[in-house]
Amino acid sequence: MGRITLDKVTKSFGATEVIPPLDLTIEDGEFTVFVGPSGCGKSTLLRLIAGLEDVSSGQIRIDSKDATMVPPAKRGLAMVFQSYALYPHMSVRKNIAFPMKMAGIDEAEQNRRIEAAAKALNLTDYLERKPGQLSGGQRQRVAIGRAIVREPAAFLFDEPLSNLDAALRVGMRLEISELHERLKTTMIYVTHDQVEAMTMADKIVVLRAGHIEQVGSPLELYHTPRNLFVAGFIGSPKMNFIEGPEADKYNAHTIGIRPEHITIGTGDGPWSGVVNVSEHLGSDTFFHIHNTGLAETITVRADGEVGFRHGDRVTLTPRSDVIHRFDAQGQRIAA
C-alpha cells in the first residue's frame, strides 16, 4: 500500500516560504511526476515526503497514518537520488544489502532479494564491483536495486536521469516505466523535463514557486492547461502566445496555439510571415516565423520534410478548434 496525503503542508527556510500551504493526494500505485522549473520547490516537496526535511506546518499521511514526525527510515519509503548516492566503498552487493542489513533482515533472505533484484536489473555480473567501476546507467540501476529490495510503500525519484546522456536517458525512462508496470508500487518522480513527465506519469503535478499550478493526467494538461504557465510548460516546442487584436477576435486577453496545430503553406491563410530559422529533424520540421504582426516569433511544426528556407514568405493557418483562450490574469477561459 502507498497512499500519500499532504494536508496543508508548508515549508519555510528561515523567513523565506518555499512551500505555501499545499494539499495533495497521491493514490496507491500511481506514478506521479512533480514537474516545474528549477527552484519551484519540487525537490523540497519530495524531501518533505521522504522525511529528510521537517515540514514547517501541516501533516503528511502515509496510508492514513500520520507520518509527519516519523524519521525517514521508518516511513517505509525508498529514494533514488540525483547523484545515485551509492556508497563508494562498498561493492554493488553490499550497497544493495545495506538497507536490509540496517533492517536486520536475515542473510538468506537478503541474498534472495539481491539475486532477484540483480537479475531484474541486469546487474548479476557486476555484484562484486565497486560503484566507481560502473557506467552511469549501471550506477542508476544499483540505486534502483537498493530501493527495490526494501519493498517500500512508495519509491521517490529525485531527478534520477539528469546525470545520464541523452541516449541512456530514453532507455532508463523505459526501464523505470516497466518497473512501475511490474511492481505496481506508488512512485513519485521529480523532474524539470516535461518530456519525462509526459511520457512516464499517470498524474502530473505542475509546480511553480511552491504552488501547485495544475494536477492532471498528461493529456489533460496538454489539452486543457489551466493557465498560461502550464500551457507554456507542457508541450515541445512551446505553445505560441498571441495578444492584442488577434486575441480580441476570440474574446480573450491572450490566445495560445501549439506549433503542431498550425499549417504552413504558400496559398491563402489568415496569418503570414517570413521564415527566419528552420530546423530539420527528418521526422518533423520546425519553422520559426518572423514578421507576422502577432508575436515576435511564431513556431510551427510540419510533418516530415518541408522545404521552406530562410527569407521565404509563408502563410499560416491555425486550427481554430484547438485555440486556447486566457484572460488578463492568465487563467483559462472555458470553451
Binding site: P72, A78, A85, L86, Y87, F98, R150
Partner: peptide, 18 residues
C-alpha cells in the same frame, strides 16, 4: 562527501551512529 550519500543511508534505515 556529497550529503546525498548520508541521506541515502538515513533513508536506508541507518541510525546516526551507523
Amino acid at each position: 562527501i556529497p550529503g546525498e550519500i548520508l541521506e541515502a543511508a538515513r533513508m536506508d534505515g541507518a541510525t546516526l551512529k551507523e
